[in-house]
Lab assay of single mutants.
Amino acid sequence: EAHAAIDTFTKYLDIDEDFATVLVEEGFSTLEELAYVPMKELLEIEGLDEPTVEALRERAKNALATIAQ
């Protein structure tokens, strides 16, 4: 499951495998979680700032909209 989540994140969020791995290690496994989890939870991840989190959430929401079509 972790590998599938990493693949999904790299494909749809335009991030590298290392960043995707950090997200999975922090407990995220779906685009929905990244799109809708409280921003505070993402900001608790070391190295993430508000602009990065906002961009990540926007990419996740856009990916979900694209997949739904």
Rank of each mutant, 00 (worst) to 15 (best):
D7A: 08
L42Q: 03
E1D: 13
E58I: 07
A20T: 01
I15W: 01
V24M: 08
I15Y: 01
N62L: 09
V22H: 11
A68L: 08
L64Y: 01
D14N: 11
A4R: 12
T21S: 11
F9I: 04
Y36C: 08
F19M: 13
R59T: 06
L31P: 01
E44A: 15
E46M: 11
V24R: 04
T66S: 10
T10I: 15
E46Q: 12
L31R: 00
A55P: 02
A20W: 02
T52A: 11
L64C: 03
E46R: 14
A63M: 05
N62C: 09
L64F: 03
E58V: 08
V53D: 01
E33G: 06
H3S: 13
E33I: 08
G27R: 02
R59M: 10
Y12G: 02
E46N: 12
K40N: 14
H3V: 13
V53F: 08
A35N: 03
I15C: 03
Q69V: 10
T52I: 11
H3P: 08
F9L: 11
L13Q: 00
G27S: 02
L13M: 04
P51S: 13
V22C: 08
A63I: 08
F19N: 03
E26D: 06
Y12P: 00
I15A: 02
D18P: 09
I6Y: 04
M39P: 08
F19A: 06
H3G: 11
E58Y: 02
R59K: 15
A60L: 06
A55G: 10
A20C: 02
D14C: 09
A60N: 01
L34A: 00
Y12M: 08
A65S: 11
E33K: 09
F19Y: 07
G47S: 08
A5N: 07
S29V: 11
A55L: 14
A65G: 09
E32Q: 10
T8Y: 13
Q69D: 12
L42K: 04
H3M: 14
T8P: 03
T10M: 15
A2M: 15
L43D: 02
A35V: 15
D14F: 08
T21P: 00
D49C: 05
I15L: 07
A5M: 11
E1Y: 02
E17V: 15
P51Y: 11
A4L: 11
S29E: 08
A65Q: 10
T52H: 07
A65H: 11
G47C: 07
D16Q: 07
D7E: 15
F9N: 01
E54C: 08
P51G: 12
T30K: 07
E33P: 00
A65C: 08
D7Y: 04
T21G: 10
A4T: 13
M39G: 06
V24P: 00
G27Y: 04
M39C: 06
A63R: 03
A55F: 06
V22W: 09
F28G: 00
N62K: 15
R59F: 03
Y12C: 05
G27H: 03
E44D: 12
D7W: 03
D18F: 12
L42D: 03
L34P: 01
E44K: 15
E17N: 11
E26Q: 15
A63T: 05
A68H: 14
P51T: 11
D14P: 02
E54S: 13
I15P: 01
S29H: 14
D18L: 11
E32D: 08
D7C: 09
E50W: 12
T10E: 05
I45A: 03
V53N: 02
I67M: 09
D18A: 15
G27F: 03
A20P: 00
V37W: 10
R59H: 06
A63C: 03
E26A: 15
E1C: 08
T21K: 15
T10Y: 04
T66V: 13
D16C: 06
K40R: 12
T66W: 04
K11A: 07
T10D: 02
Y12I: 05
E17Q: 12
I45W: 04
L31Y: 00
F28W: 08
A60F: 01
F9W: 02
A65P: 03
E33S: 10
L23C: 01
E54F: 01
L48K: 02
K61D: 03
L64T: 03
I15G: 01
P51F: 14
V53M: 10
F9G: 01
V53R: 05
A63L: 04
A4C: 09
D16L: 07
M39A: 11
E32Y: 07
P51D: 13
A2W: 13
A68P: 08
N62E: 13
K40A: 13
E1K: 10
I6T: 06
L48P: 03
A65W: 03
P38E: 12
L48Y: 06
T52L: 12
L13W: 01
K61E: 06
L34E: 00
V24K: 05
P38R: 03
A63N: 02
E1I: 10
Y12R: 00
L23A: 00
D18S: 12
K61V: 08
I6L: 07
T66H: 11
F9H: 01
L34Y: 00
E25A: 13
V24F: 13
I45T: 03
D18V: 13
A35E: 03
I67H: 06
A5Y: 07
H3T: 12
E41M: 06
D49R: 05
L23R: 00
A68C: 08
D7H: 11
D18Q: 12
D18C: 09
R57S: 06
L48Q: 03
A60V: 09
S29G: 09
L56M: 07
Y36F: 14
A4K: 15
R57C: 05
P51M: 12
V24H: 07
R59W: 03
A5T: 10
L64A: 04
S29N: 12
L13S: 00
E44F: 10
E58P: 01
E1A: 12
T52D: 07
A2T: 13
D7M: 06
S29L: 15
G47Y: 06
S29M: 15
